[in-house]
Write a protein that binds this DNA or RNA. Structure first.
Lengths: 214, 214
DNA sequence: AGCTCATGTAAAGGGCTTTTACATGAATTG
DNA sequence: CAATTCATGTAAAAGCCCTTTACATGAGCT
């Protein structure tokens, strides 16, 4: 075919960087048209290769999706960890920062978020995927543990349970209200404020209220 | 309700109840293979009609999905309302019942739940869909309002905010932990108990704690 | 009985997925 | 440096799905 150097990228018969290019194309397509709007064929088209070429790099469409999800969880974990910052300047505020980071990721990286939580991937597809997801949850887990440690032992709740509550509230707000563009419901306040208030009330209910948090 | 040949083989050229049969087939397929595993063509096959027949009843595949989602929200709203039971026997317990109903619906009706929250339907597809969803949320809204009314005005939080927190926590737990089968994470307790504890802490944080709730 | 129209079918165009056989050329090796 | 290897590309094809169009059927009304 006379595709004489249409895109300046490709220099010859071989693409040279197809795997990464396909992932970038998938992110674009998912962000633009939802997780169902991404097709192997169109990613290949964007990369300027034939529809069969992607199969040299991914077993099938789901494998690419799983790779996107895994990368997403890795970035997500990094963002959350950065926000938590080992509890600095102070655990309560650091947890609020982590919550904001959760929502920010859902909003600014809808493609990753979608692949991570809504692509309905067979969970046994990739052990690395589960590991990356666990790493993200570990940040919330660590934050909850630090906060729980402030409570006197007799009234101290199981920190795992607390982390699940925190995660659930953040995730619920993210999926119901903080998604990129569409299914958003009219809110009386920004999702970030909603989550901040929710965590404040919840932690208050644990006995982590008032001055000891500032 | 079953005025037509439900469950029987069609006897003639016309099916007689294709619309309902297609919806039933869609529910089966979604429950079995996820929302992406449902195809118009296969639903038609299950109903014993040609691939073009469904277009006499639904504009396209998304329209059928939207109808399933709408019906799901209607049932969901009914289940939540039944659990809330106008705050009987007592608002705090009634809210816990409502939370359990939320999780129960997610678990026992994965097909509806999936169509409602994860089918990525264009939100402007069907005004009835949005109305039905609002009706479900109205139950949580009403419950939160009733509970907030117990607080003295000076410390009373906006009940809309409270309802959003309750909804987010229930939805987060439902989507992360209480789904039908697959993406479930190992939990130290049943999702129902997790939600009950979360609501207890949260409401305690609002000042709705202790004896006044029993 | 005859008509009408909702509801079905057949056929076809276009797209996606995945496999198989073959082509290319970059990297390795003698 | 030349030959070979093998990862990475293409072409072609089978199978499935979505959707439209033209046509067929027969249920219900007059």
């Amino acid at each position: 075919m006379s595709w004489s150097r249409q895109g300046r990228k490709r220099r010859g018969y071989h693409h040279g960087n197809l795997r990464e290019t396909l992932i970038a194309a998938a992110l674009d397509l998912i962000a633009e048209k939802g997780p169902a709007g991404f097709t192997f064929a169109e990613a290949a088209r964007l990369a300027g290769v034939s529809p069969a070429a992607p199969y040299r790099h991914f077993r099938d469409r789901d494998a690419l999706m799983a790779d996107v999800a895994r990368r997403g969880f890795e970035r997500f974990a990094a963002e959350l960890a950065r926000a938590w910052d080992e509890g600095r300047p102070e655990p309560f505020e650091a947890l609020q920062n982590t919550g904001r980071a959760y929502l920010a990721f859902a909003r600014t990286e809808p493609a990753y978020f979608t692949a991570m939580f809504e692509a309905q991937l067979p969970p046994d597809l990739d052990p690395e995927l589960a590991r990356a997801a666990d790493q993200a949850f570990a940040v919330v887990r660590q934050a909850s543990e630090t906060l729980c440690a402030r409570l006197p032992k007799p009234t101290r709740p199981p920190s795992l349970m607390v982390s699940l509550h925190v995660w659930a509230m953040a995730h619920g707000i993210a999926t119901l209200f903080a998604r990129g563009d569409a299914a958003r419901r009219a809110l009386p306040m920004p999702p970030e404020d909603l989550l901040e208030a929710g965590l404040l009330v919840y932690l208050g209910g644990l006995g982590l209220g008032g001055d000891q948090n500032r």
